[in-house]
Amino acid sequence: MNLNIVTRDPEETQKLGKRISKLVVPGDLFAFYGELGAGKTCFIQGVCQGLGVRDYVTSPSFTIINEYKGRVPVYHFDLFRLNSLEEFLDLGYEEYFYGEGLTVIEWAEKVESLLPFGHLKISIEFFNYSQRIIYFATSSDRYKVFLKELIQSENIRD
């Protein structure tokens, strides 16, 4: 199942993230794709805001994982600097992927083969300087329901 949404500025992207956060339950996993500057961190900031995270949601490129406290805990991965699966395996990632929080991963393509079956793919593309096309895709039932709810919630064009 697929869904595309165009956002016109960073605030809209964050709002979308915020809206999605309402549907989040512990154990969820969102995999993000898109080049540098696409707005992955921006989207995740919206999700975290919606989950009541107080901490600054910054780019975890340096520490690879940031953890935030919110309505559910958030595990924020940024795999920008990672170059092979091997390197990822020892980060103790299982505890996050299969844990009790929301896992969000920037540059998820780098660990594609380790992603659990049930996850939501969110891919962000430049349309122009301030517009972004955000693609959602999933093959798991949990997130099909999720996307349907998202469509029904206010203001979203399919």
Binding site: L85, E86, L89, S113, L114, F117
Partner: peptide, 16 residues
């Protein structure tokens, strides 16, 4: 020690 890449890919396929 860790699994060979081939095994990891294989395992992934069977779970999907």
């Amino acid at each position: 020690l860790r699994k060979s890449q081939a095994e990891m890919v294989r395992e992934k396929k069977t779970t999907e």
